[in-house]
Design a protein around this nucleic acid. Structure first.
Lengths: 257, 257
DNA sequence: AAGACAATCATGGTATACAAAACGCATGCA
DNA sequence: TGCATGCGTTTTGTATACCATGATTGTCTT
């Protein structure tokens, strides 16, 4: 079977007519997880998934309280089926907890959990940086990262801070993309959801971090210089520092996350 | 035959009495979330998910051929709804691809993909080993790992080889558990699905790897000695070697994966 | 008054109904 | 002959119906 194949389900049982019409691109839009279908045409499930995810990340739903399927269906103007589908996906990403006879709960962010997530990030993104430095030959993307690394923001200006969050995410995901390994990209992307959530929560208590322009830039530089060890170490330290900041915050303000 | 309309008799016309207030479930103590339902509680969706997953891993469905929802529903004696739910989950784990008007396809295993997955494993499991060595203080689990590391098997005895696969998975997941980081455990577990699939596919072409008893044991030893650097390096090399074997196989026999 | 118990109701899991769209086929027109 | 088009079938996405289960509350017993 497809040992050296291009990905693509072979059409298998049908040696029938070879469709020569490229009218309907077979590669087209299969609903993929990840960022694939940017397609304007989306299914309700997909929109619900995106919407719910966004809302959870933005802190619309306090992690303590329950949402029923029915309720969500109403709120997003759909029926229970798409809600359910979205919920299943979100649960697998640990953004939502489904408790059988209670409802859906936006997963709570504990200090313990924060530690775990940063630990995970340090592992995965450290490896990303190393790999990126090792195989890196996508100058275009590297340029893009260098640009993103510069992103600053006005303290206490929420809109600008939100732009920064986006840039930060783009930076880290971009780094993963440098490895050209979809799995790493996926892992980093998933983590970014959680990180964004934390950042939004931080805004909620009036805290705005600082743009790690220097750290980001150094990382890019290390990658450009093809110094895997350095890249890894810098990324690792960057993440550890990030954790320290957040933890200090979390301990200070206590239980708001 | 279409349109078998069913006039539904009015259900009890309840005069809609009191209470519509969502109560406050507060914070129960049910910490079930992490380990999926290990309890006897089986919903059809869950069983379907497990079953389908198992079958994909065991190579029951050749990656080329399409499965329709209807068909699967019949095969697993359920309706489309649970099938759908299971499929969504499996898709997120990259075990299944859902192609809109063609059906479900067990994801194909390309050489490229193999490289990616091993790369990912090297990153994540390397970090696991390091962390395990660093924080390790769960002697019980470490003993268990040492035991698992010894698992051998009779060449060309399928049953024994399957036991080995299980032990191998248990070993790697156990290592992740030593980090006490659920996210790492999850990541490793997810990868194991894919690895098992590869191993089963290897059986299919009459190949039985070799039990990496020595490598596993050395890793455990490094962890026990609290030597993070060594542990990481050993794990890394172990995985790279593993990849080399599989790739040699894949190139050699070509078309069976 | 406290606790066991029964009635009742919401909820979640599943099956099914319905609708829109895609594919396949065949036919018609150039 | 070849391409476009129309129709029927299949598939998929969504809504809804159904039912068992579990939760909540009020009542009764001690």
């Amino acid at each position: 079977m497809p040992s050296l194949k291009k990905t693509h389900p072979s059409k298998g049982r049908r040696p029938k007519s070879r469709r020569a019409t490229p009218s309907r691109p077979a590669q087209g839009g299969f609903r993929d997880s990840g960022a694939a279908s940017q397609n304007g045409r989306s299914t309700l499930s997909e929109r619900l998934y995106q919407g719910l995810k966004r809302d959870i990340i933005r802190g619309v739903y306090p992690p303590g309280e329950a949402l029923g399927e029915k309720e969500l269906a109403k709120r997003y103007k759909s029926s229970r089926t798409p809600v359910r589908e979205a919920a299943v996906r979100l649960q697998q990403e640990n953004l939502l907890r489904i408790v059988p006879n209670r409802g859906y709960f936006a997963s709570s962010m504990t200090i313990n959990w924060l530690n775990e997530i940063y630990e995970f990030r340090a592992a995965v993104e450290g490896a990303c940086a190393e790999l990126a430095a090792r195989k890196g030959n996508d100058e275009k993307l590297a340029d893009e990262l260098a640009r993103l690394a510069q992103t600053e923001y006005e303290t206490h200006d929420r809109a600008s801070y939100e732009r920064f969050i986006k840039a930060d995410t783009a930076f880290h995901i971009g780094m993963a993309r440098l490895t050209r390994n979809p799995m790493l990209v996926r892992a980093v992307s998933d983590m970014r959801c959680h990180m964004e959530r934390v950042m939004y929560a931080a805004i909620g208590i009036g805290y705005y971090g600082e743009a790690p322009v220097k750290e980001h830039s150094e990382i890019v530089q290390a990658i450009r210089n093809h110094d895997p060890e350095l890249a890894r170490r810098l990324m690792y330290e960057h993440i550890i520092q990030s954790r320290a900041k957040v933890l200090r915050l979390a301990y200070g303000e206590s239980s708001v996350l």
